[in-house]
Every structure is written in C-alpha cells, then in structure tokens.
Design a protein around this nucleic acid. Structure first.
Lengths: 124, 124
DNA sequence: TGAACGGGTTACAAAAAAGTAACCTTCTTG
DNA sequence: CAAGAAGGTTACTTTTTTGTAACCCGTTCA
C-alpha cells in the first residue's frame, strides 16, 4: 500500500505540465527521435493547428521538459528534443501507458480507431 | 532507454481520465481514506463547486476509477471509494508525484503556497 | 522577379471546462 | 410547522483551451 501514499501537490504539478491535447503525441515523437524540427513534428501530427503546436512546445520548454535549439543560418532550423528532466519522466509515462493497456484496453482501442486513424499512421 | 518506449495511445487515455482540475486531490483523499461520503469530500476541498465535484466524480466513476455506493434510507448516504482498477494506478501516480518533488520542487512549493494555502490544510 | 520554404505571430471564433446560485426531495428534529 | 441536512439537478456565466486563417521575415531557387 506504501506506493499509494502519494500526496497531491506533485501529482497536480506533473499533470498540469502534461495537460494539453497534443502533448502525449508530441512527447511520444520526441522520446523516439532524439531531435525533431518544428515542421517535421507539424507534418507528423497533421491535425494540430500550427498555433496550438507552438503553444504546447512553448509551455513544455518553459516547464523544462524539452529543449528548443535554434541554429542560425538559412533556412531557419529549429529543433526540439527531450531534456534530462523530461527523460526522467519516461518511466512514469510508461507506467501510465501500461496501465491503460491493461485496464482500459477498450478506450485505447477506441482512441486508435478515431484519433490515430485520422492521423493516417500506425503508432499503436 | 527501454522504459521510455511508451506509445501515446494509452498515455492519452490515462491522462484524459486524470484531467480535471480537482481529480488529483480527490484521488489523494480517496486513496488515503478507503471510503468517503460526498459531503465529506466537499467539505475537505472547500473551493470546489458542488457541480464540478459531482461532474468529476461522475466521470471517474464512468471511467471505472472509483465506485459510488448508495445506501438507501435516511439521511441519503452515498460513499465513494477507489476501485481495483483505480488502485492499480497508484504506483504510476506515485511516480508522477515523486518526479515532481525531484525535478519540479519550485513549482510544487508554489502550488502549496497558492492552492493548498487556500484550502487551509496541510496535505503537502 | 516572384513563388516557396521554415518558423513563427496576430486577431479572432468556437468549443470545452469550471464556477455561481437557486432549487428539489425526503426525512428528522426543535 | 418550519428549518435543516444529504445528495443532487438546472440554468446560466465566466474562463480556458483549441482551432482558423491571414500575415511576416529573410533566403533560395526557377
């Protein structure tokens, strides 16, 4: 039962940082790619509005979860990658993913059908 | 790196279930109390609107995280408790809490000052 | 010269989440 | 007989989050 003795303050902080319609898929891509450019992310998540993707990335950068790097020169080249702080969250994110697959398989399947289908990808 | 190979579907499903301004604190209380009545919860989280608390509880019940039990008789007695499915999420919630305390201590402190202060409680 | 590209910003509209206040029901107690 | 308590619902407002579309800047390429 000990692992259930969480307090709610940290939980609140973490969930706030993770809340945002497209953050899970952004994190997924960044965790799996080490570095991605803005347009690359935008193309791979085609339904997200440019502005919203930018908003999410800005928040995540402000929260220290990801790092934005701008190489000057032309064409403008901006890349995003997961920070150490962000990487440290990996196991917890895995745990949430695992729980869903074990305890909410139906919802996961439904999500794949509706959302992922519309993204025309196979990201499970 | 293996523990970072989460997919985003399950993550999305879980975070959606956890999203709601007062869900972390609701879960906190239910995880620590085995069973609580509606009014008890409402009194312990004094800033939440009755309607919103009810909405959150309904969603969490619909998602299978908690169980609502209604004993008939008078006065009406309704209690809420964490389901097995909900309990299985405990370790993941702990992981989120722990991460925040390690990597986002400032935000946690800020949260305690602003939000918890207003709740007039000491729940860390 | 002018169209296209990468990475934005801006102004605005739509939708979703949270909050407010009044009301309801069924009993019990003063 | 009036008030109060538990657990809600209803109608409505405010705030927050997402989404749409147009525009900007500086270069390169046709």
């Amino acid at each position: 039962m000990n692992y259930n003795q969480f307090k709610h303050c940290g939980l609140n902080v973490t969930l706030t940082m993770l809340s945002g319609k497209w953050k899970p898929i952004i994190l997924y891509h960044l965790f799996h790619n080490a570095e991605m450019r803005f347009t690359e992310l935008w193309r791979i998540i085609p339904k997200v509005a440019k502005k919203v993707l930018l908003d999410h990335l800005k928040q995540m950068e402000a929260d220290g979860l990801i790092i934005r790097e701008e190489k000057q020169g032309f064409p403008p080249e901006v890349s995003y990658r997961v920070s150490e702080k962000g990487k440290a969250l990996g196991p917890a994110l895995s745990a949430l993913e695992t729980w869903a697959n074990e305890y909410a398989a139906d919802e996961v399947a439904e999500f794949k059908k509706t959302t992922v289908g519309k993204l025309r990808q196979h990201l499970s």
